[in-house]
């Protein structure tokens, strides 16, 4: 039995990710929970997140999720998704600046400021305006041979919806990059952590394959 815990800290829809894991998993039990014991007893842990980072971080700290996540990554695989990924970083520009968990070095930046303009406008290489949020299917270029990419073609499209993106610290390792006005870190790995900005649970075949790979991953690279 493969025990999966989806960390629930009250921020948005966790059912999609739980359902996707149930769909791809063989012999899995999925708990959507904030209970430390359940999470620490799981074999694989998913750290999702949607919504505003200040609210997310507030709930993460209030429920002690920060300590649980720190404990999880010592000995078991953790998949962080979207705002869950952003929460791992040092800080975010969102909500006038929010301090995050600092488990991965780097910061979370607003697309509107990405090109240094004061106007909050993002443009592509031809100068055409890009919409924010970055919403829809975009290509992820794999920058390593991480086990979570097994069976997924390079430059496959995944579903994104976010207005903030990760600028990774120089010492950290990106696993995938995507271009939206600027190149940004779409996936990263660090020890037992694999984190993605896109939503694997909404990315059809490629996303389901990534989840399948996560369930089979023992945390080593």
């Amino acid at each position: 039995m493969n025990k999966i815990a989806v960390i629930d800290y009250g921020m948005g829809n966790l059912h999609s990710v739980a359902k996707a894991v149930e769909y791809v998993g063989e012999n899995v039990t999925v708990s959507v929970t904030s209970d430390a014991r359940t999470i620490l007893q799981a074999d694989h842990v998913i750290f999702p997140g949607v919504g505003a980072i200040r609210d997310c971080m507030g709930e993460i700290r209030r429920l002690g999720i920060d300590e649980i996540v720190a404990e999880v990554v010592r000995n078991k695989p953790l998949l962080a998704v979207c705002v869950g990924m952003q929460a791992l970083m040092d800080s975010s520009e969102e909500n006038n600046g929010v301090e995050c968990l600092g488990m991965v070095s780097g910061r979370v930046r607003y697309f509107g400021n990405a090109q240094g303009s004061e106007t909050g406008v993002l443009t592509d290489a031809d100068g055409k305006r890009l919409k924010v949020p970055h919403m829809g299917w975009n290509m992820v270029t794999q920058t390593d041979k991480h086990p979570l990419w097994a069976g997924i073609e390079d430059n496959s499209r995944f579903y994104f919806v976010h207005s903030y993106y990760i600028e990774l610290g120089a010492q950290e390792k990106a696993s995938g990059v995507t271009e939206y006005g600027v190149p940004f870190t779409a996936a990263l790995n660090k020890g037992n952590i694999f984190a993605v900005q896109f939503h694997p649970e909404k990315s059809q075949h490629s996303g389901l394959q990534l989840l399948r790979n996560f369930l089979a991953w023992d945390g080593s690279v």
């Binding site: 059912h15 999609s16 359902k19 996707a20 149930e22 769909y23 579903y159 919806v161 939503h199 649970e201 909404k202 990315s203 059809q204 996303g207 389901l208």
Partner: peptide, 8 residues
């Protein structure tokens, strides 16, 4: 639908 369809 949500338990069988994995697009938004």
């Amino acid at each position: 639908i949500a338990s069988q369809v994995f697009i938004p």
